[in-house]
């Protein structure tokens, strides 16, 4: 085939294009992913029974703030990554801020507690449930994020996959927080932070396969 022929073919009956459909797709994906994640957490796990107490609300808010912070930074960055060359435009390091804040607060909270409490503060009651729930709930948000990014044209597939995973993990953590009654900050840092990082790594591993265009 001659390139001239291809150019002629592509230019024949050209249609105007819609601008930035990928941004809209990402918003739709985020909304849908969040709805599904909350639905699963609500139906399969149930909301924590003490939700009406002030104490529970404070801890729930703190966990949500952590997860929303991650998702917020990650979505902004992912909209850039979805365009060719987007990875060269800005640095992704802002997303570690919520992690650093939580680790810092967890360290303070460990430091102010007697050593004999540490095990209990870190391991909590439901570490296994948290470890399993967040990645499982993250599957649907991850799938819709990938669907949205595929409308764009990412040129760094590992990083784009990682951010799709990060968003999915963050959304999933928001949903799981409704159920989780382990309220110590070290628990949140290790098990929430850890599983979200796990989702990010899974996304990075899957990115090149799922996002190629």
């Amino acid at each position: 085939m001659k390139t001239d022929d291809l150019v002629a073919l592509l230019s024949t009956n050209l249609e105007p294009v819609e601008r930035s459909p990928v941004v809209r797709a990402l918003c739709v994906a985020l909304a849908a992913g969040t709805a599904v994640a909350f639905g699963i957490a609500f139906v399969a796990l149930g909301v924590r029974s003490d939700l009406t107490t002030i104490r529970a609300l404070i801890y729930l808010t703190a966990k949500l703030a952590f997860a929303i912070g991650i998702v917020g930074f990650a979505v902004v960055y992912l909209t850039r990554l979805a365009r060719p060359g987007g990875e060269r435009k800005s640095s992704p390091f802002l997303v570690v801020v919520p992690f650093l804040v939580v680790v810092f607060l967890a360290a303070i909270s460990l430091g102010s507690a007697p050593r004999s409490h540490w095990d209990r503060m870190i391991v909590g009651d439901q570490w296994l449930e948290c470890l399993l729930s967040i990645p499982i709930i993250a599957i649907v948000p991850f799938a819709v994020s990938i669907w949205a990014v595929r409308k764009g044209a990412p040129t760094n597939l590992v990083r784009t996959g990682a951010f799709a995973g990060l968003i999915a993990g963050g959304v999933s953590a928001m949903a799981y927080a409704l159920h989780c009654t382990d309220d110590s900050l070290p628990f949140v840092a290790v098990w929430y932070g850890g599983t979200i990082v796990l989702c990010t790594l899974a996304g990075a591993a899957l990115g090149p396969r799922l996002l190629r265009w």
Partner: peptide
């Protein structure tokens, strides 16, 4: 050329064109 055509909706009109073409 095909990619530039098919993905032209990912071009951010506020940005210069050269880096976008180069990335593709």
């Amino acid at each position: 050329v095909l990619a530039i055509h098919l993905k032209r909706d990912t071009y951010d009109t506020g940005e210069p064109l050269t880096p976008w073409v180069y990335a593709i």
